[in-house]
Amino acid sequence: MRAFSGRSLGELTVGSLHRGELTPDDVRIHPDTLRHQASVAAAHGNPQLADNLLRAAELTAFAEDEILALYEALCPHRSTAAQLSGLATSLESRAAPRCAALVREAAAVYARRGLLKP
């Protein structure tokens, strides 16, 4: 099993920590692991949890402030239709089609329910 950085889980030791060898990416989950966990969830009667883990796999490639910005953009009255559309396009271009679909779906409902930024 490998961390996001590619480092093997077996190298996560107090010794390597003490030598200052570990970085935050060494304790981050790898997208392949999330995809594997998604298949486990699907096999245990929860396809929605599986979908969530697949979206999460896409988000592993995003920096923390990007994720916080994405969250903020989806909060009510934060984004115009155009902004959400642009966000979805950008997500598609960064290999995050599931997150992009979530944003497009939100944009359609937000427009109908008055949740867009005027």
Binding site: L34, N52, R55, A56, A57, E58, T60, L70, L102
Partner: peptide, 9 residues
């Protein structure tokens, strides 16, 4: 939903 995925990520 995005927040949920953010934690999992």
């Amino acid at each position: 939903a995005l927040l949920t995925s953010a934690y999992a990520s």
